[in-house]
Design a protein around this nucleic acid. Structure first.
Lengths: 371, 371
DNA sequence: ACATGCCTTGACAACGTTGTCAGGTCTTCC
DNA sequence: GGAAGACCTGACAACGTTGTCAAGGCATGT
């Protein structure tokens, strides 16, 4: 809160009597000529010679206004460059909609998140709704601050990727009229609508593909296990290997790997040993990139197979091109937004779980067979 | 505008007398229990046993409220999960700030645009300001629609990448109190604050580097010449070649190339000829990727030098790693936002031109010498 | 004891808009 | 010709909040 109050200089409203109190002071050179008055409905009404309410009707395309008045009002509005004030409108309207939703993602400049963003925007645009977007950066404190900020701006709903923390606090927010849909990760402490990738299935696809090629020694490098997505991929890896009665070598199973550099280090460590896996499964975007680097450094990129989870730009241009389990983040965003608009429309709270399928994209790095 | 009026069912305000008119109809099963009432200041005031204004003072951290009352009010607010309504606050406040700005970029899911977005967010966050973001997709109609939409939501200012069209219409918007800063491209028909990459200088750096390596026959593949950025890069290419008295072979100069596929086609066309350039300058992101593809296809990636304009993820992992002129889109976003907040703060309109330097990132593809 | 001034609190209007309702004009029908 | 209805228009209140101002309590100085 604590608004913006330092700017002061409090310009009195445009056409009221001007305060004449400080006439004794020298002329205020370059006074903060702040905030030119915007034309309001009142101004349009005056210019068109009609009442306020008639302008309102014309602006909102209500039926039952005579054509002449419509023309007059539209002309006056155009001449003044009138823009209806959605904030005032929202205040008065009975549905209290702001035609704005909030989107909280990991990082707006991240390839995955911004694809989700694009998907949400696709749908929001159809509904003529604007999107307030923000990066959470995996920070629970920032997450709850953002929820407050967006709630204060009275967004009609929220699409968000939850952090690892507890989300019981959102229950009250939702009860107070803020519909929300989670995307990419399941929240803890609240039952809510959620759109997820099928992590287990995607992982199974990748691993079984490698197994079919004859691989028996597959390394697993996964992300932060506080995140469900990472855990699901790990569990599916284990389950799939077991189902095929293959040994899981603990020295080739890494969890809690964070970011490209860490992944490169981890991969390099076991690639320099004499005993090596014949294939590597990198359970996340950044990790895949790190492994690519490590393989290249060790000049093993054509000897050891690699499949990553989540596609990325240029994966097909690398040497060798990198096989991946491709998610469909844009679709996830679209689906989440569609769900949200349903919830907003009929005001009911529900707890549907939607899964967006992932598919295996076979590229050379995956086709390498064990020696 | 034509707001959202189809949802109907007009729930009367929460604690007023409930309308008893249609008691004869069957019970409305699962009636759209729309919009639960949110607590307002009035509710908080009642619960804390103080006046409305006192709650306002506490919420806004104004001085001069007795500590006991502050505690009482804060307690009541917390119990009700009260969230101040920024839209109502903005309406009444004399500064009329919404603490929200608009951002219009090419595409939220584009690597360059979303880095600009991240930069804007960095600065907005410091100011506790939310960002309404939208993709323009190089569509002038969409651009002006978005400006209207954001203006109606009374954003405090606008950061935007202009399309190729005319922008005189924004003059009136700005005169009506909407500060704006352009980023990445210079607008036409309006003098305004603008943050640009130094396209000419970046291009010069790249070309002179190639020349220094001994290249004399350099191909140029550039983007849509309706965009100034593309034109500037082209002109700088020509000027630099001429300054070094090198021939410009028209059959190796391509403009108006759009997207990866188009670039690949164009590059492939001249790579299949017997006479070839010894180096290629790709004047844009997508174009560079297309050229990489074409070179790889022709197996010339280690024979012909390549430098691209604008860096991209994994450029360093390609074979060979691709040399580029790197812009700093995040810095551009930050700078634009900083400028915008200055304009918002002191309400003055100005027309500063800011240039963010680009730098040459040398990677193997640039180090290839002519045969 | 009284005037003065500071400090805290609340009543009230207003921001720009829309929902409600009443009033006016014009048809239509007996 | 008059009543009834359809149609169009405007006056007014209200949405949730803050700016303004006045009133009351208390301490201080004479």
């Amino acid at each position: 809160m604590g608004g913006v109050k330092d700017f002061g200089m409090d310009v009195t409203s445009r056409n009221d009597t001007v305060m004449e109190l400080e006439g004794d002071l020298e002329p205020q050179i370059a006074a903060p000529r702040a905030i030119p008055a915007r034309p309001t409905m009142k101004d349009v009404a005056a210019r068109a010679g009609v009442s306020l309410k008639t302008v309102s009707r014309v602006v909102n395309h209500e039926v039952g206004v005579s054509p002449e008045l419509v023309t007059k009002v539209e002309l006056a509005a155009a001449e003044l460059d009138y823009r209806p004030d959605l904030t005032a409108s929202n205040l008065r309207r009975s549905d209290r909609r702001t035609s704005t939703i909030g989107l909280m993602i990991e990082d707006v400049s991240n390839e995955f998140s911004s694809a989700v963003h694009a998907g949400v925007e696709d749908v929001a645009r159809l509904h003529q709704v604007a999107v307030l977007s923000a990066s959470v950066h995996e920070d629970p404190q920032r997450e709850s601050d953002l929820v407050r900020a967006l709630s204060s701006r009275r967004v009609d709903g929220l699409v968000l990727t939850p952090t690892a923390g507890d989300h019981a606090y959102l229950e009250r927010e939702r009860a107070n009229g803020l519909p929300m849909v989670f995307v990419d990760r399941l929240p803890h402490g609240i039952d809510a609508d959620c759109v997820l990738t099928d992590n287990a299935e995607g992982t199974r696809l990748a691993i079984e593909y490698l197994i079919a090629l004859g691989h028996k020694h597959i390394a697993f490098i996964g992300g932060l296990s506080i995140l469900d997505t990472a855990t699901q991929r790990h569990e599916s890896f284990i389950a799939t290997m077991q189902r095929h009665q293959l040994p899981i070598d603990p020295e080739w199973v890494f969890r809690n790997v964070k970011g490209t550099d860490d992944a490169e280090k981890v991969a390099s460590s076991f690639l320099s040993e004499s005993k090596q896996p014949t294939a590597i499964f990198a359970a996340q975007n950044m990790i895949t990139m790190g492994v690519v680097r490590a393989l290249k450094l060790a000049e093993l990129q054509h000897k050891i197979a690699l499949v990553g989870f989540d596609d990325f730009a240029l994966a097909d241009l690398l040497d060798p091109p990198v096989a991946v389990v491709a998610q469909d983040p844009r679709r996830m965003g679209q689906l989440a937004a569609e769900l949200l608009f349903e919830r907003i429309r009929d005001g009911k709270i529900s707890e549907e779980l939607h899964t967006v399928p992932s598919r295996l994209v076979i590229r050379q790095s995956g086709e390498i067979r064990p020696a």
